[in-house]
């Protein structure tokens, strides 16, 4: 593993993890923990012209209920492909993905839609709010798809909006909101149907540091107070500090897994020095 080019996102964190040797013992970590997502030897091959690209090459991973995991890695390392697999948006070439014990490969299109609607919440880098709807309508959308009565959905939608401190802006449309507010609406939307898992794909990638931090704190609170399982794909150091576990990917493989607690002190100080 060579050093990443200077200035690449996450290079400092990479160095830290590389330099601090640490044996991650999964068996002790997994004690008394319930598996939410289980990934078993998955491979994903793409054909680009004549050559075959191995986006994922034999990944084994367990995610536990209530944990906050961060996936890191340079671009092209297969993070997004891994997310697509976990989120049921794409199917693996080989291997299996289980969510709450359900084998995704055995589900048909409508069952997958059911799963996506109720078991997984998605938070995107570009927020992906429906621009024609108000904040509340956006939050209500997954509940409508789940068949909830609109009145109940409205009540729950307001509760979720107040959880992300946006209850006063329920009437606003995405273009009347800032990036941080839009992302908070998106998080409220992802929580709509009490998902087993929150998939965050670079949730702070389009935000400045300050609003990014607000989002971290929000996700951290959700994880610690509401016991929401979060898996987060990020380049952001601040994000790492709130997570329980870091998963490092390179070339479609898991390179290393570490508990954040083990690197916490070093990383936090580095974060302070570098950015504040």
């Amino acid at each position: 593993m060579g050093r990443l080019p200077y200035g690449a996102h996450g290079s400092d964190a990479y160095r830290i993890i590389q330099t601090i040797f640490m044996e991650f013992n999964e068996t002790s970590y997994a004690e008394n923990k319930e598996v939410v997502v289980s990934i078993h030897e998955i491979q994903r091959l793409y054909s680009r012209g004549t050559e075959t690209v191995r986006a994922l090459d034999g990944v084994d991973l367990n995610l536990y209920r209530g944990e906050y995991a961060c996936v890191m890695g340079p671009s092209g390392s297969g993070k997004t492909t891994l997310f697509n697999m976990i989120g049921g948006l794409d199917s693996p070439t080989a291997g299996r993905v289980f969510i709450d014990g359900v084998d995704m490969a055995q589900l048909n299109a409508k069952e997958l839609a059911f799963l996506r609607c109720r078991k997984i919440g998605y938070v995107f880098q570009q927020f992906n709010l429906n621009t024609t709807m108000t904040a509340l309508e956006n939050v209500m959308l997954p509940m409508i798809f789940a068949g909830m009565h609109p009145d109940n959905a409205r009540v729950r939608g307001m509760a979720l909006l107040s959880k992300v401190q946006l209850e006063e802006r329920w009437r606003h449309r995405p273009k009347e909101m800032s990036g941080g507010q839009m992302q908070r609406v998106a998080i409220a939307r992802s929580l709509a149907n009490n998902p087993a898992l929150l998939l965050c794909d670079e949730p702070t990638g389009n935000l400045d540091l300050k609003t990014g931090k607000e989002i971290h704190n929000l996700l951290y609170d959700l994880n610690k107070n509401d016991k929401v399982t979060i898996i987060c794909n990020t380049h952001d150091h601040n994000m790492l500090s709130v997570s329980d576990r870091m998963i490092w990917m390179t070339d479609g493989k898991i390179d290393r897994i570490a508990l954040t607690a083990d690197v916490h002190i070093e990383k936090a100080s580095l974060g302070e020095e570098d950015y504040e």
Binding site: S38, V102, E111, F114, K119, G147, A196
Partner: peptide, 11 residues
């Protein structure tokens, strides 16, 4: 592990 959740077709 067995199916712990009930997955139905999306309505």
């Amino acid at each position: 592990s067995p199916r712990t959740i009930d997955v139905r077709p999306q309505q």
